[in-house]
Design a protein around this nucleic acid. Structure first.
Ligand code: MN
Ligand code: MN
Ligand code: MN
Ligand code: MN
Lengths: 222, 222
DNA sequence: CATGAATGTTAGACTGGCCTAACAAAACTG
DNA sequence: CAGTTTTGTTAGGCCAGTCTAACATTCATG
C-alpha cells in the first residue's frame, strides 16, 4: 500500500497525471506527458499500459487516462514527498528555490516513510512548499490550493501571489530578481492582448511579463 | 568522472569490493559478495563482468577481483556519501545509530554532489560516522582508520573503541544498552577460547561478548 | 595426486524501461 | 464527408539486472 512498492518511473507517471489536474482542467494526454517528461509517446503509452495492469489507472486505447483511487493515493503521496523535500532543502540545507526541484525529483523516490515523517516534524508540518504549492497532509488530504493565473486577472486589481510553477529554474531566478515570490503583492496594470504582454506593478516598479511568465504565476484577489 | 554516471547496482558492487579491504586483508570473492548483498553468485559474476567491461575492476574468470584506480575512486566516493549521510541523519534528523545504515544505503545513490557538499559543510566536515568509521575527504583521501578487533587484544589491556561495524542494527541496539560506542573506553578481562567468549569491563560492569559481537568492535590501546 | 566438494561461470528466461519505425485511430478542415 | 494531419499504439530491438539450471574450474583431502 505504501508508495515505495512502485518503481521510480511508475511514481513519476502517477505524479504527473495527478499534477495535471491540480491547476488545470483538461485531462492529460499521452503526448503531453511524453513532452513534459522528455520521453517518447510510445514509451508513455507503454508505461500507462503497465499502470493499468496494476490497477493504478484506467485507460482504454485512445481513451482518456484516469487515476483509480489507489493510483490517486500513491500520486498524492509522491506530491507530498516532493514538496516536503523541496521545503527541507531550502529550510535546512540553504538551497535556493530555483535549485530544489530537480533534487527533489530524484530524492522523492529514495527517502523512506520514516524520513519523510521526521522531515515533516522538523519543519513543523509545513503546508506550502517554496513555490507556494500546497503540501498534502499525511492522511492524503490536499490542502486545497486557490488562485487563478495572473493572465486572468482584470486590470487595476491588486492581488497576492499564491504559487509559482516550479518547472523552470531560469524563470524562478528571473522572478527572484524582480522580487516576485509566494505572498508577494502586486497590481495588474494591463494586458496587451496582441503583444501577449501583462504589465504589473510590484513595489514601485513596473514590469512587463510575457505569456509563459504570466501563466506561471497564480494569484488571489485581496 | 562523477559517481552518478553509474547505476545504483554498480555503485554498490564497487563499494562492497572496496569495503572488504578496509578492515580485513583477504580479497573478496564472488560468493562472499553474493552473500553480503543477498544476491545469487551468478548475478554477482555477471555484475563483475559488466564492471570489468567498463574498466572499473580487473577480473579474469575464476581469478581475483581488483579495483582499477577509476573503480577505487568511485568506491571511495560512495563510502564518503554513505558515511556523510549516516552522520547527517543522526545529527540533523535525530536518527539513532542503528537506524541510519539502511536509509543511507538507498540515499547514497540519489543525492547530488551539491547536496553532499552542503551536508558536509553543515556538519563542519566531519571525519567519522556514527559508527566510528572514517569519512573519506572530498579529494578522495581516506582518513586512515586504525585499530584492531577486540578479539585480538591481550587480557588486562584498557582500550578505546574506534569503530563498530554497522552491519547489524540489532547488535547496535544491544551495544547501546551496554553503553558501548565509538570512543568508549573498556578493559579486556579475558578471552575464553573454547567458549568463544570475550569478557570486558565497561564502566563498573562486566560483560560477556560472543564472537560476532567481539569481532564487530575495533579498538586501539591507550 | 585423484576425485569429490566447493566455488564460479554461462546459458536462457523474464521484467521494466527506454528507443525507432510502422501502423491505426481520431480530429480537423477544405 | 473525404482526405490529410495529428495523435496514439504496436512491433521489435536493446540494455541492466535479476533468477534457476547446467556446466566448468579449482580446491582440499584422503
Ligand atoms: Mn521523480
Ligand atoms: Mn515545488
Ligand atoms: Mn546502496
Ligand atoms: Mn556507518
Amino acid at each position: 500500500m505504501t508508495v515505495s512498492e512502485l518503481t521510480a518511473s511508475a511514481q513519476d507517471y502517477l505524479k504527473m497525471i495527478w499534477s495535471s489536474t491540480e491547476w488545470a482542467e483538461a485531462p492529460i494526454t499521452v503526448g503531453a506527458m511524453a513532452e513534459r517528461m522528455a520521453l517518447k509517446p510510445s514509451t508513455v503509452s507503454d508505461g500507462i499500459r503497465r499502470l493499468a495492469k496494476q490497477g493504478l489507472v484506467t485507460h482504454a486505447p485512445y481513451g482518456s487516462i484516469e487515476l483509480t483511487p489507489a493510483g490517486r493515493a500513491h500520486a498524492v503521496e509522491m506530491v507530498r514527498r516532493h514538496r516536503l523535500l523541496e521545503t527541507f532543502l531550502v529550510q535546512v540545507l540553504g538551497y535556493g528555490w530555483d535549485e530544489v526541484h530537480d533534487e527533489a525529483e530524484i530524492l522523492e523516490h529514495a527517502v523512506s516513510d520514516t524520513m519523510i515523517q521526521r522531515i515533516d516534524e522538523k519543519l513543523g508540518h509545513p503546508t506550502r512548499d517554496p513555490h507556494g504549492d500546497p503540501i498534502p497532509s499525511g492522511n492524503g488530504l490536499p490542502h486545497r490550493p486557490q488562485g487563478d493565473p495572473l493572465t486572468s486577472v482584470e486590470p487595476e486589481r491588486t492581488v497576492t501571489i499564491t504559487r509559482i510553477s516550479d518547472a523552470d529554474p531560469d524563470m524562478l531566478r528571473y522572478f527572484t530578481q524582480l522580487g516576485l515570490g509566494p505572498d508577494t503583492r502586486l497590481q495588474v496594470l494591463a494586458h496587451r492582448p496582441y503583444a501577449d504582454v501583462t504589465t504589473i506593478r510590484v513595489g514601485d516598479r513596473d514590469v512587463d511579463l510575457g505569456p509563459s511568465a504570466a501563466e506561471a504565476i497564480w494569484v488571489v484577489a485581496n
